[in-house]
Amino acid sequence: MAEQKEKIGKQVVLPMSKAVEISVKSIKTRLGRSMITASGIILAIAFLMSIFVSDSINKTLLEKGSLKVRVQLQNVGGEEQARQIWLVVLSLLVCVVGIANAMLMSVTERYKEIGTMKCLGALDRFVIKLFLLESGFMGLFGSIVGALLGGLMMTIVSSINYGLEVFTKFPVLGFLYYFVVAVILGTVLAVIGAIYPAYTAAKMVPADAMRSEI
């Protein structure tokens, strides 16, 4: 037994930089698919951001806007807002489910690749790391695009409704704050959606890589 301990080591590593490199490469190679997965995040975050921004603009205009605009805004009821929040939460949930589905498909497709990596000495947590990173990057990219898109759209809509006042009194700080919140939320949700698929991938037995059929 003592001799065994000397002969067999435990250290197998996957540096973070290498993991990032592999997962980014994975996304780039399957760009079309990654974009479709990311588009779910883009849409959900765009919706969220548009609600954030419209809320922020409305509040600012209620305080500092001209009388005409303020009267216009008083007619927007609180009931409407509650329904919007409900819709946003739903859209985010749908987005998480979409990501989980896309990542599960990706795991099935890469059965052999994962098995091979395990034969080469990858630990379960390397596989988990790679899948979470991949999903996280798609989430980050999707939320940035989505937040910009949603923010921009809502600013335009507001300017149509309330006039150019929107631009002169634009709540820049509020916009930045909500932007960061939306991006973080989108990335975190993408990672959450990938947890189950990543776990499924990691639990795969390396012997499956040996099988010649799919």
């Binding site: 994975s26 399957r30 052999k112 690749e113 990596m117 040996m210």
Partner: peptide
């Protein structure tokens, strides 16, 4: 560790990582 350093695998369908 054993799979990483002591054993090398060659497969019928090559199994290179495509990306």
């Amino acid at each position: 560790w054993l799979r990483c350093r002591k054993i090398g695998y060659i497969f019928q369908s090559f199994n290179l990582i495509p990306v």
